[in-house]
Amino acid sequence: MKPKIYVTRKLPDVIISYLSNECEVRMWDKEDEPVPPEILAEEIEEVDGLLCLLTETIDERLLGKGRNLKVVSNMAVGYNNIDIQAAKSKGVQVTNTPGVLTETTADLTFGLLIATARRFEESINYVKEGKWKTWSPMGLTGQDIFGATLGIIGMGDIGEAVASRAKGFKMNVLYHNRKRKIAAEETLGAAYRELDDLLTESDFVVVLTPYTPQTHDLISYKELALMKPTSILINTSRGGIVNEEALYQALLEKKIYAAGLDVFEQEPVSLTHPLLQLPNVTALPHIGSASVTTRMKMAKLAAFNLLEALQHRTPPNLVVTV
């Protein structure tokens, strides 16, 4: 008898066909709408495996309903949507999809940095709203990127990929990380700084650290107040790492120049969110890995991880082992 799995979002047919060769597949059939928690709770009762997204909260209560559940395959690098300790205690393996999205997310991060620094969103609206009447000497001026100092918080694979891109702009690269990355210092010319020093020296601060209890509100008002009034904050990691109330206040008080955000603490972000009311905030809908090629790689890897676990082999991307 084939193992039963549940897929929490509509995936491309090629992925479902791949899974169907080995499993009995049930799937939430809406691409742009998350599965309701009550339906997920019903589905998980009978399945051996779950392929989910960051939009699903896989907590202890839900895991407790999975009588036959053996593996949760998260189609993401992060896994803060899953109660890891509860999964381990219940003997459920957890996997993720690292590596395949590094370059795409680095592209998006650097693109958001450029868009925020040069005020792309404001300029696009300026044209579309018919406000472009003449050339103004200081109209819609932003901040230079070439030769500026970039501070990276979290020098993992994506951080190193962003640093590599920055070298093409002759940027001075600083970084803060739990551990020194000597190889990155040698190959990328990056210099280690304590967090406060990085914030003080950088023209651009890019947040790329994983979200953990230790990094929650890592960047709050005290940290933002250390930054230059001409500096720009970019967050393409997780929303909870930057305190949004503090960021709003710092932008209002012109403690920093602007912010580019691909992530928010609550997603999707509310249209009434204070940060969305500010002209110097460039906001994106969590699209760091959103290229066709990369999302397909993520889906294939999530499916592969799931099947390996169900076939009693060791998945290549284990977060929780049992």
Rank of each mutant, 00 (worst) to 15 (best):
G260Y: 06
Q266M: 10
K2E: 04
I82P: 00
Y18W: 01
K131Y: 05
R67T: 11
V242G: 05
L278S: 15
P279S: 15
P12Q: 04
L233G: 02
H312C: 14
A183W: 04
Y175I: 15
L63N: 10
A86E: 06
L150F: 08
D13T: 15
E31Y: 13
H273G: 14
F304P: 00
N68V: 10
P36V: 05
E22H: 09
G151K: 08
I124L: 13
I145K: 12
L195M: 08
L198P: 00
E33D: 15
K254M: 12
I241Y: 01
H286I: 14
K133P: 00
E60I: 01
T272N: 13
V162D: 05
M75E: 05
R178E: 10
Y248A: 06
L233S: 07
L51H: 04
N81Y: 05
L62W: 01
W132Y: 12
T200A: 13
E103P: 03
V207D: 02
K228F: 02
T95I: 01
V77G: 04
K70E: 10
T294H: 03
M296K: 07
C23D: 03
P98G: 07
A259E: 12
L40G: 07
T105F: 03
T57I: 13
G154P: 08
Q85L: 13
I44G: 01
I256P: 07
N81T: 07
L53M: 15
I219P: 00
E56G: 09
V94F: 00
K10R: 14
A299Q: 09
S237M: 05
I152G: 05
V72A: 15
K222I: 11
N305R: 08
I182N: 13
P34F: 14
E194I: 14
T55P: 00
D157C: 13
T102W: 01
G91R: 02
G260R: 12
P285S: 14
N172Y: 07
P229K: 13
L252H: 06
E121Y: 13
F169C: 10
I182P: 00
H176A: 14
P285V: 14
P285H: 11
E38M: 11
E308D: 07
D157P: 00
L11F: 08
V242Q: 08
I256Y: 00
A76N: 11
A184V: 07
A309Y: 02
A309E: 01
E24Q: 10
L284Y: 12
I84A: 05
S291H: 03
Y79W: 04
L19P: 00
I234V: 15
F110G: 07
T282Y: 08
G154T: 04
L50Q: 05
T109R: 06
I241E: 03
N235G: 09
T215W: 02
I44T: 05
E56Q: 12
V7E: 02
S20V: 09
L112I: 10
R9A: 14
M27N: 03
A290G: 13
D48I: 06
F204P: 02
A309I: 07
L310D: 04
N21L: 13
A87G: 07
E223R: 04
G91V: 07
E129C: 04
K300G: 00
L112H: 02
S237V: 09
G151Q: 10
R119E: 07
K2Q: 11
A259V: 12
E122H: 08
M155L: 15
A86Q: 09
G139M: 10
P37F: 06
V269I: 11
